[in-house]
Design a protein around this nucleic acid. Structure first.
Lengths: 242, 242
DNA sequence: CAAACACAATCTGTACGACAGGTATACAGA
DNA sequence: TCTGTATACCTGTCGTACAGATTGTGTTTG
């Protein structure tokens, strides 16, 4: 009679406290949180949820890995939006652990970027074309600086995806870029790959300028096919000499 | 003169201990770990790395969120491979927080699945065609059980992606399925959507059986276009009545 | 008056100890 | 041989304590 009442909610909530708290905070972030705003301190959250600071910290670690918060030492936890970079990291791990073949990964690049440029060609503005121009100018200027050259190359392709007008497509292309970076580097390092790449990028812009989707697709396909050949030869060389 | 010697290693290692430990364990998992194998206990890791159990626990939380380990109460931490489900969760958060439009998301589905079926048509085996048949049989049998019907529908599309022979494409289609689930549900719930879907799936198999890529693409496109119309009308209804 | 410096409050990082509760293994008994 | 129980092991949770980083404030100085 005087026994404790069975708490069924606890029977179902097998999940440890730190996960429940993490999910609870995540929900609050997604539905009510503004980016860059500061979360209460660990002490405050501890009091607010009625759990120890340990739990709050472990929950924040989960959220940090989910890309939802950024924790600054001595500063606090700030809300951040998960980005394509987070997707890239995750995909990269899967690619490595599942030993997904290079050609399979590169083929996705072709599928996505061809789809992107097809849509971009029909809707790109003059201003956006100019931005692409200056991007290639930057690539040419950074011809000697591999890191910068690579970064601007990646940005070029991401820009086209952005100009497709499809945010999801843009997100995926950006995510794939993180996975593809090693290929892009190999392509630039391959004999003549640096100059050839720049030339092909200009051809892509020229095709876009005609607003003819199929011409743009063809220019992009030509670039990616050539690039893949360069990548393959460069990487097989690397593997042999390694 | 008697000032402390600058410790450059510490200058570079700005990252907190728990992150360093997490990265260290991650590297070990990726390069030397076998799936399902058990990690040392928190106490053992604590001693091994020379840090407190607190740090180990927080590091494990990071790895848990990265999809690299699964922590069982009283059992221990086990190595797991990150899966498409993890990608789905991440993409779903981004889609929600960035308010990416439904049509943009659905369009990616079309792009990926059309690419998948094009490759699958050229290489699918008789046995795989039979498996697709039985999958649709299952969908028909589960016509009344929405949850099961949805799951088998998703599996059907993932199977085709798998039969494309491209692991990366398969991964992305599976990941997108997690994001698209609400659309698939809406499509089935729309008037006639359930039966129509099953019929269209059979048409897809028939097209695949001819091994004609373009015929298969057309069947898939017809299905996805029709489905999208159903989804839109169903979701706008839902939104109005909500 | 303004700028730079110093101090104080706040917050995260890290460590240690303790106990509850879940899991699995090994041993004993039927 | 099978079953059930006891035990060792392991994660979950809590509390305290202190170091180090950051930020804001107030004072001092040019």
């Amino acid at each position: 009679m005087a026994g404790k009442v069975l708490d069924l909610s606890e029977t179902l909530n097998k999940k440890p406290l730190y996960e429940q708290i993490a999910d609870s905070i995540e929900e609050a972030i997604i539905y009510k949180g503004e980016a860059a705003s500061k979360l209460p301190s660990e002490m405050a959250l501890s009091a607010q949820f009625g759990v120890s600071r340990t739990i709050i910290r472990e929950a924040l670690k989960l959220l940090q890995a989910r890309g939802l918060v950024e924790i600054r030492v001595g500063g606090g936890a700030f809300i951040t939006k998960p980005e394509s970079e987070d997707v890239s990291e995750l995909l990269l791990r899967i690619v490595q652990m599942d030993r997904i073949e290079d050609k399979d990964v590169y083929e996705i690049r072709i599928i996505l970027e061809v789809a992107a440029i097809r849509e971009a060609a029909a809707r790109i503005s003059d201003k956006e074309l100019e931005l692409l121009d200056s991007q290639v100018d930057g690539m040419e200027a950074a011809k000697g600086d591999l890191a910068k050259r690579v970064e601007m190359d990646c940005e070029f392709h991401c820009l086209i995806a952005k100009y497709s007008g499809n945010s999801m497509l843009s997100l995926l292309v950006e995510s794939m870029t993180g996975v593809l970076r090693k290929f892009i580097i190999a392509g630039i390092k391959s004999p003549g790959g640096n100059e050839d790449g720049i030339e092909k990028h200009r051809a892509i812009i020229a095709a876009l300028r005609t607003r003819d989707p199929e011409a743009a697709v063809q220019a992009m396909t030509a670039h990616l096919d050539r690039s893949w050949n360069n990548v393959r030869s460069q990487m097989s060389l690397f593997n042999q000499s390694n």
